[in-house]
Simulated scan of single mutants.
Amino acid sequence: MRFGIIGTNWITDKLIDAGKEIKDFKLTAVYSRTEETAKKFAQKYGVDTIFTNLDKMAESDKIDGVYIASPNSFHSSQSILFLKNRKAVLCEKPATSNLKELEEVIKTAEENNTLYMEAMKIPFIPTYNVLKENLHKVGKIRKMVTGYCQHSSRYEDYKKGDVKNAFKPEFSNGALMDIGIYPLFLAVSLFGSPEKLYADGLILENGKGIDAQGIINMSYIDMDITVLFSKITNSYVPTEIMGEDGSLLIEHPSEMSELYFIDRKNNNKKTELTLPGQENSMYYELKHFIDLYNEGKTESPINNFHLMKKVMKIMDEARKKIGIIFPADKVK
């Protein structure tokens, strides 16, 4: 599968690195707003074709699909452009700025019978399936506490008055959108949508900037889930799914790097359930996407449109309660 790349940052490097392990992956084109950046990135990977115009890239016969890793606020329009040109789209998370945009992208994908998937790697990592298979061991599930808190190097620049894109609301960024989506996705993929939702957070610039950190509490009929996220602190606490008979511990929800079962009924015996896997965890989502393309599929049966919309709807509601409004939310 011939890929074009939009976005020349570290996450793009990681995806290309994962692609080296997949025989059907081929990088054939690079896009950047500036020719110099595009050439530099293309030369690094031995690519001959570069674009500084997205319309020309979308119309090109040099690519079968595109990986979008641009700022969040561009995900919707760029996805729609390529889908209309019948190019498969693997878009970095979050898929769009809000649910309205996501519904428009999905509608475009369906109208053009073209493959579209959000690059959310969690459900494709082998240990994720082991987690699902072992949920019954904890008995009646009562509580889940999960989070992703990672101090951003750009926050140090922010404190000095140098506000990078990662801290600008016009790019639909923030702790929830950038990293909180991982633990939230994990929770919703396992347990669905809540009955009630509460959210709060710290908004920078006296409430006019992005959310630097926050919390979402979700209530279900007989359990509750707490989701923590931050770009200004680190956390070293694992995700825990607590049941009446024991707990499951997950190190780092976005990587599923370690999984343990603690058996309350057996003197709290701790058993590791982690499956060995690829060092580059993006391998699995990329391999799945390429397989879908080769099979002529237009939607992932795992990270499907219904699940994507459920997660985005919760993020919209959480942002509303926290008080985060993006320019993309105001577009009619």
Rank of each mutant, 00 (worst) to 15 (best):
Y155L: 14
G323A: 09
N129Q: 15
S247E: 15
K121H: 15
L135M: 07
V105D: 00
I241T: 04
L273R: 06
V66R: 00
R86C: 11
K20Q: 12
S257G: 03
I322L: 10
T226E: 14
E101G: 14
E285R: 09
I203K: 07
K287C: 13
K168S: 10
K297G: 04
K231T: 12
G46A: 02
G296H: 01
S247V: 08
N267A: 06
Q78D: 03
R264I: 10
S79H: 04
L115Q: 04
E104D: 12
I68P: 00
V163E: 11
G7M: 03
K313T: 10
S70I: 02
K265P: 06
L176H: 06
Y182T: 09
P194K: 07
R33W: 02
P253D: 09
M57E: 01
I324M: 10
E258R: 14
N280Y: 01
Y155D: 06
A175Y: 04
L197H: 08
F326W: 05
R154D: 12
D157K: 10
M120H: 13
K208H: 14
A88S: 06
P71A: 04
E317N: 13
I215V: 15
K310R: 11
T52W: 00
E59S: 10
S152G: 12
E251G: 04
K313P: 13
T127N: 04
A212D: 08
S254Q: 11
E317A: 12
A38S: 05
D162P: 00
D157V: 08
C91T: 06
G46N: 12
A38V: 01
P126R: 04
S300K: 09
G246N: 05
N294C: 10
P169E: 01
F74L: 09
I179H: 08
M1E: 05
D224P: 11
R33N: 01
S153Y: 14
Q43N: 13
Y148T: 07
D200E: 15
I210T: 06
P327C: 10
I241H: 05
K164C: 15
S257H: 05
E285Y: 08
R154V: 10
L249A: 14
L286N: 01
T298H: 07
E251S: 09
N112Y: 10
E118G: 11
L249F: 12
N53F: 01
E35L: 05
V311D: 03
I324L: 13
D48Y: 10
L273N: 09
G192V: 00
I63M: 02
L307Q: 06
N304H: 09
N234K: 11
I181C: 05
V188Q: 00
T108R: 04
M282Q: 07
G65K: 03
N134A: 00
E317L: 15
N72L: 04
Y148K: 12
G209N: 08
I16T: 08
L131D: 11
S70K: 02
S257E: 11
G201P: 14
T226I: 14
T49K: 13
K160P: 08
K62Y: 11
K270M: 08
T271K: 02
P169L: 11
N268H: 06
R154G: 15
G161F: 10
R154N: 15
F51A: 07
F124A: 03
E21W: 07
T37K: 15
L135S: 01
L131I: 03
V130F: 07
I68N: 00
L307D: 01
Y283K: 06
E104H: 10
K137C: 07
I80L: 01
I80E: 02
L204D: 14
L102K: 04
S300M: 00
